[in-house]
Design a protein around this nucleic acid. Sequence first.
DNA 1: GAAACGTGGAT
DNA 2: TATCCAAGTTT
Length: 385
Amino acid sequence: MYDPDAAQIAPFCASDAVLSWYDRHRRDLPWRAKPLEPADPYAVWLSEIMLQQTTVAAVKPYFSAFLARWPSVHDLAASPIEEVMREWAGLGYYSRARNLHACAKMIAGAFEGRFPQSEAELRRLPGIGPYTAAAIAAIAFGRRAVVVDGNVERVVARLFAIEAPLPSVRPLIRAKADVLTPHERPGDFAQGMMDLGATICTPRSPACAICPLSDFCEGRRSGDPARFPVKAPKAVRPRRRGAAFYICREDGAVMLRTRPNKGLLGGMSEVPGSVWDADFDPAAALGQAPMRVPFKRLDVTIEHVFTHFSLTLEVFAAAAPLAQEAPAGCRWVAPADLSREALPGVMRKVLEAVGRGGDLKPNGEQARQAKPRAPRAIASMADAG
DNA sequence: GAAACGTGGAT
DNA sequence: TATCCAAGTTT
């Protein structure tokens, strides 16, 4: 009787082991071409941008939504940037969305709808760095490219038991990955390495017993593969504080504004707020409110963690008459339009806390079940003035 | 090279 | 609650 596993020829080298493992255990992902089918460069590019520092689970619903709404790079290029930002809302790292749109316009325009195939050309496009250029060249176009992401770093660091710490050891890891990368099927090899890192050679407790590279692995031989890659100590995350001003008009409209395109949450919508800093004084917060109306300080605080600081937000609420005009830079948003705003996660928390969560579309179209929410903060307001 | 740049899930 | 982590890029 034919046994495909028994018939498997012992891999000649580590890259063969990765490829044969990939053929049997590849993950079935929405953006991934089926075996023997050609890759769609648009889907590869879109998924690679979304996957930058972002988990597969988080990307899936966004990828589906983008592909359904903009089936081709031409469709995406023709869309207003505001709609792209809105669809991206909740996924994080918003400069990716702006660069995505800028890149789509370049491809649809100067490149006549076709992505360049070489790493060097891809690298010149907005939002495409060394990793993404290599990934697209290899996965979408079958070019030999050295694809090094966090998964590959971990697999290689363990394979060679590299003692020097990240990030300074990156050039060495890349050199090792270069030697491993085959001239045949470089795209499958790259995806195999990433799948290996995501499912077998995981950060905490690697499953060496079922790893196709275990015979080659110095890290396993060392007895403690999980200690690789060694990392330099990271800086402590400071805390900043600030105020958010929830102003609701008689008809239910909410006052919002749009953040500057550059910097934190660039181009996204927000409830007006104070500056966020380490020595924020709630007692003096109203001096930074967008208009002089009687605010009440709510009995809630919003906690949110960004990459480089934690944020604690005090919420102040006020009602405004129907005739109240929005101050410069601000606008009234009707309840029915709230779900179409490009609201980042932290602002969704604010609106959730004041009882306007029901007006929002869930992030990424996920059917998120209503978490047991604290009783409406708006009902338990403490006098601020 | 260092710092800025989001978010949610796992531990 | 605190820390780590996830298919990195830009300045």
